[in-house]
């Protein structure tokens, strides 16, 4: 059984099929890249996987269990971490507090009215921050971070519930080239050591070819190719519609 199994996933917006009959799997310990030109349906796909959107039809199974109709917060509790294309963090909190929130939520302790939130799970939060290289900035307000650091913070937050699957929507968008390589190398390390499955979308082909174990290509809502990077690169249809301008 695959970690994530998607079959026949379809979503239409007012007659336009944004995603049509898409199916793929993600195995534990692999990094699957989802690529495609703008408007191919990548974000729609992601939003269905984490429960923000309800698919019109198709199935999504996480470890054999269907997640259709579950809200993002339920999907998260099943072990799916998510980072957003435009980072979403808690601006009025420190870096560490952002991670502590995820830890408190994971342990079901958010309803507590009495203990000091900032004193909970400090060591664990710092350990997660250390993994993404953000330990030194733990005390800083999240609102003053550089964009690349926000992306790393999101990764730490996503790791807080020891996820089985990470969904990363353009994890390196808005970062400098050097930062991109570093962040994806970091992700690759974590995937290997924790045996997490990763699904990510990306526009930077360098990042994709360097780190993806496999890739799938989406165009106009349809899956047109899949396989190891070398295969996809050689696929004439992919070259035509996706890399056309360069080849």
């Amino acid at each position: 059984m695959s970690l994530l199994e998607v079959n026949g996933l379809t979503k239409a917006f007012g007659g336009v099929r944004a995603v049509s009959e898409v199916g793929f799997t993600v195995e534990a310990g692999e990094i699957l890249a989802l690529i495609g030109p703008n408007g191919a349906g990548k974000s729609t796909c992601f939003n269905m996987l984490n429960g923000q959107l309800r698919p019109d039809s198709g199935s999504i199974k996480l470890g054999g269990v269907s997640t259709i109709g579950l809200k993002p917060r339920r999907v998260w509790r099943m072990g799916v971490g998510r980072t957003f294309q435009i980072t979403a963090t808690f601006g009025s909190m420190t870096v560490r507090e952002n991670v502590q929130m995820a830890l408190l939520s994971h342990r079901g302790r958010l309803k507590n009215l009495w203990v000091r939130a900032r004193e909970q799970y400090v060591a664990e939060a710092d350990a997660l921050l250390a993994r993404v290289g953000m330990r030194e900035q733990a005390e800083r307000p999240c609102s003053v971070l550089a964009y690349g650091d926000l992306k790393r913070l999101e990764l730490a937050v996503a790791l807080a519930n020891a996820p089985k699957l990470l969904l990363m929507d353009e994890p390196t968008a808005g970062m400098a080239p050097k930062e991109r390589i570093e962040l994806m190398a970091l992700t690759a390390d974590i995937v290997k050591s924790d045996s997490i499955g990763v699904l990510f979308t990306e526009h930077d082909m360098d990042v994709v070819f360097r780190h993806a174990s496999r890739m799938i290509v989406l165009n106009r809502g349809q899956l047109i190719a899949g396989g190891v990077p070398a295969e996809v690169r050689a696929n004439p249809e992919v070259q035509r519609i996706y890399l056309g301008s360069r080849h």
């Binding site: 998510r82 979403a88 909190m93 939520s105």
Partner: peptide, 20 residues
């Protein structure tokens, strides 16, 4: 306390709050 933080989390970023 955690409750108050969760409240602020929902104000700061409903998207992220839901995602955790």
């Amino acid at each position: 306390a955690p409750f108050g933080y969760a409240l602020r989390a929902g104000r700061d970023s409903p998207l992220r709050a839901d995602a955790i």
